[in-house]
Design a protein around this nucleic acid. Structure first.
Lengths: 338, 338
DNA sequence: CTGAAAGCGCTTACAG
DNA sequence: CTGAAAGCGCTTACAG
């Protein structure tokens, strides 16, 4: 069975391909009777346009590229799901580019997406310094940078106020009477992790609590590093009574380590996470955490991109900074004896 | 800056576009000197082929479509990540189609993928009976059905042996001395859930344990339904000593409910999950579960599709059935008093 | 070893 | 209200 083309439809309906095209795209007034006949044939032959041909001619593919570090990370999966959803609502499909946090794979995807003529790109950077988005700009493909900031002035940006969120998470612990507050960090080459850590330090400073470098354990946003980080902290002579863990997966790992060591959370140790992934409310104890507005991030990113694509917005680039929200659950409580 | 085309390259290198094309695709012997000059210009002008043009001409897009119910479900996210990875290794990009378990959205994506001329499709069905994959076959687009069986003979298929896995999970509980074994099911319109439940019933029967319909609670694979299902089971007069929960997310919800009711897992209640998602080993107690070979599923599905695309395999369709593996952790133990 | 040219299936200025 | 035709950027049979 050969693919049905606009030519087949024109022939069958007894009109020109011009007319068929205009009926399909509603770009010209057509005699109602003609229009009806064409629509009938379109339906009868089960015509579907060839996007390759349309793209070649119009330069538009109705496709957006999504580059992100790892779709199997719950946070990015949720973001991807929402972007897919908003894109779909506006008639755009999404090509998925998993960078695996590998700058080489990331760059390869940048060129693939250009070759595939995506109309626009939502970019969540792999770790590291090198993010050469210029090929997109050279090809006039608009880019929205999300979640992780990139040292580049040419794109619209949607970010969380990670510094302030880190500050608030830490202040929550201070408000509960904690004074020896440890931190398990994320990768030190992505801005969310770095900025949350800055917020942690600012809160300590604002409340006159000395910053102790040995109360900081380096994690990588995977839960195993939370477990390992906590094991180390439990041996720390400073005996922290609370820990700010820079994402939920690691926080759950930290709780596991505390339980294995025979400690109770929060009675012996208060723990604050970050992200508010779906499972945060299901673990035991339910996790106190800084909620990321995932839906907002995805919606803003998609909308900003689509505004560019439809030339609704042509002025200079926007930076949207969204707030996180403290969700108090059962993994934090007032420090014993305070 | 205008996009660089093959014509620009030909002009700059002083050869025909035919030659440039053959250099790019390595489809003809070219004089080494000419070839070198062309490669130089290609590089110098930073040429990238226009896939729309190439697709229009060749009929191939080097793109595969991935239709799945929900990318924010950890299991599918992991599958998607692996498919993306294997696809990438073979030069294919992935267009993501989230059906949201909505047959209408699923059908819409089927047509979108056809219009976008994907070379092949990996299909994980939304719940329900209606999966009209014929448009793909009509357009000669090969399809690999994964994870959820579909009543259709035309595609290659990669599935887990869910019935046997359900049997083994239940037998594990029986081996531990449990005789009153409840079940929290998944959606009743997808084959994995239905078949795991069949395996559960077969195990009971094989060991002479009467099947009690009121020990079955209906879930939906989301953890909240595991929590709710367990709350109901705790009020059940039959007092189950073990529960087979048909996926891990619900199993974690079930553990949470047991803890909230003051019960200990596994001392008071043994729980077996299904999937072995990453977090299964991190929750407390670590979850005993049937591990799905996610990597195998994704690799088999991608490879079978690529074999079709490259006409390595043209004979009739294959059905690959993979086994699950019991991973015993800390959420199950010998029944008290047995 | 190389090139001129047809043609993939559309959209859209131009013409009437 | 409608149509003939150019042309988007490639690949590839045909010719030499």
């Amino acid at each position: 069975m050969k693919r049905v083309t606009i030519k087949d439809v024109a022939q069958e309906a007894g009109v020109s391909i011009t007319t068929v095209s205009h009926v399909i795209n509603q770009t010209r007034n057509i005699d109602p009777k003609t229009k009806e006949r064409v629509l009938e044939v379109l339906n009868q032959l089960d015509y579907h346009p060839n996007m390759a041909a349309r793209s070649l001619r119009s330069g538009k593919t109705k496709t957006i590229g999504l580059i992100l570090p790892d779709i199997s990370n719950l946070f990015f999966a949720e973001v991807a799901r929402k972007i897919e959803d908003y894109g779909y609502q506006h008639g755009y499909s999404v090509i998925l580019g998993n960078s695996d946090n590998d700058p080489v794979k990331q760059e390869s995807y940048i060129h693939t997406l250009i070759a595939k003529q995506v109309d626009g790109v939502i970019f969540i950077a792999a770790g590291g310094e090198e993010h050469d988005l210029r090929p997109f700009f050279d090809n006039k493909i608009p880019v929205v940078v999300a979640d992780r900031d990139v040292p580049l002035e040419l794109a619209d940006v949607v970010l969380l106020d990670n510094e302030q969120a880190g500050f608030e998470a830490t202040r929550h612990l201070i408000d509960l009477g904690h004074r020896t507050i440890a931190c398990i960090t994320g990768p030190n080459n992505v801005t969310p992790s770095m900025q949350r850590f800055e917020g942690y330090k600012r809160a300590l400073q604002d409340y006159g609590i000395p910053f102790q470098p040995d109360l900081v354990e380096a994690g990588n946003f995977q839960f195993m590093s939370g477990e390992v980080g906590m094991q180390k902290l439990l041996k720390n002579p400073h005996k922290p009574s609370a820990v700010f863990v820079l994402n939920d997966m690691m926080a759950i790992g930290a709780i596991t380590a505390a339980h294995k060591a025979g400690l109770s959370v929060p009675a012996d140790l208060s723990i604050v996470g970050f992200d508010n992934i779906e499972i945060a409310s299901a673990v035991n104890p339910a996790l106190t955490t800084m909620a990321q507005p995932i839906d907002d991030i995805a919606q803003k990113a998609t909308n900003m991109l689509i505004e560019r694509l439809q030339s609704i917005r042509t002025e200079e680039n926007m930076r949207v900074i969204l707030p996180a929200q403290l969700i108090v659950r059962d993994s934090t409580c007032i420090r014993r004896g305070s």
